[in-house]
């Protein structure tokens, strides 16, 4: 997935100021940044939901030349929140995704997707009676059902997610992130807006840090998640720590207090 000189204008305000974006299949690409930095707008531009100028290529093909059904068989998208207008059941919602993708003829995928997300036994329940976290996992099951196998016709399949773990408890956050990391390892592409910097540090292969509609930094988590860069991005003194055994950076809010104190 390559985007060059992406600009998005809403009303009179330019939200994205001509940024470049790249994501590789086989990797989890995380888009992070403060509120209002344009993370969701970028995802919407990349998925064609918002009109954007610039060039965008998905598997080396310009997005605007792909028919809706061609796009649907190459990539699935989970928005930040999805309301369902009528009393559909969980399995019916997931089947809507399954039937839109290239694996519609392969039976059992919606059930398998629900099972992977810990939603066994939820198939017959009404979607609108679920908790926020259960709804979010149902939507992810729908997305995964659409592009179930990470490679289709020799080409990688992609999932685009806008904060897929925002409503989940810590246990299910790991379930979902493990699932996404597995999807990427199997050859698929995962592009996700993340709020949680620690999960980003653990799971992302590539991090795009945004601020004010532009890319402030990009690279591996260790390259991007540094004291100086994060403090600049979030306009608040932040301190990144590294536990000895794994070398994965982490951000401890308690430690940031100390950083703020030290700075002041």
């Amino acid at each position: 997935m390559i985007g060059n000189d992406i600009r998005v204008t809403l009303g009179k305000a330019e939200i994205l100021h001509g940024l470049d974006f790249q994501a590789r299949p086989g990797q989890v690409t995380a888009i992070v940044g403060p509120n209002g930095s344009g993370k969701s707008t970028l995802i919407k531009a990349l998925t064609g939901e918002l009109a954007a100028t610039g060039s965008m290529l998905l598997n080396n093909r310009p997005i605007d030349t792909l028919r809706p059904w061609e796009l649907a068989s190459t990539r699935a998208v989970q928005s930040q929140s999805t309301t369902v207008a009528f009393p559909f059941t969980v399995i019916e919602v997931v089947r809507l995704g399954h039937s839109a993708g290239p694996w519609a003829a392969e039976p059992g995928i919606p059930e398998a997707a629900l099972a992977r997300l810990g939603l066994d036994g939820y198939a017959g329940r009404y979607y609108h009676e679920l908790s926020g976290g259960e709804q979010q996992r149902t939507q992810l099951a729908r997305v995964l059902s659409q592009v179930w196998h990470p490679v289709f016709d020799g080409q990688p399949a992609w999932v685009f997610l806008d904060e897929p773990v925002s409503s989940l408890d810590i246990g299910h956050q790991f379930v979902v992130m493990d699932l996404l990391a597995g999807y990427a390892r199997a050859g698929g592409g995962v592009i996700t807006v993340m709020h949680d910097l620690n999960l980003t540090a653990i799971y992302a292969d590539h991090v795009v840090l945004m601020k004010d509609g532009a890319v402030l930094a990009r690279g591996t988590p260790s390259e991007v998640l540094t004291d100086a860069t994060l403090s600049r991005a979030y306009d608040h003194p932040l301190r990144v720590n590294q536990p000895a055994p794994h070398g994965v950076p982490y951000i401890l809010p308690q430690a940031c207090r100390a950083a703020a104190g030290g700075a002041g």
Binding site: T47, E49, P68, W69, A76, V77, T82, T83
Partner: peptide, 13 residues
């Protein structure tokens, strides 16, 4: 598809 909203319907092809 539209029951899931216009954006999601679009993503469903």
């Amino acid at each position: 598809g539209l029951a899931l909203g216009e954006a999601t319907a679009m993503h469903l092809g």
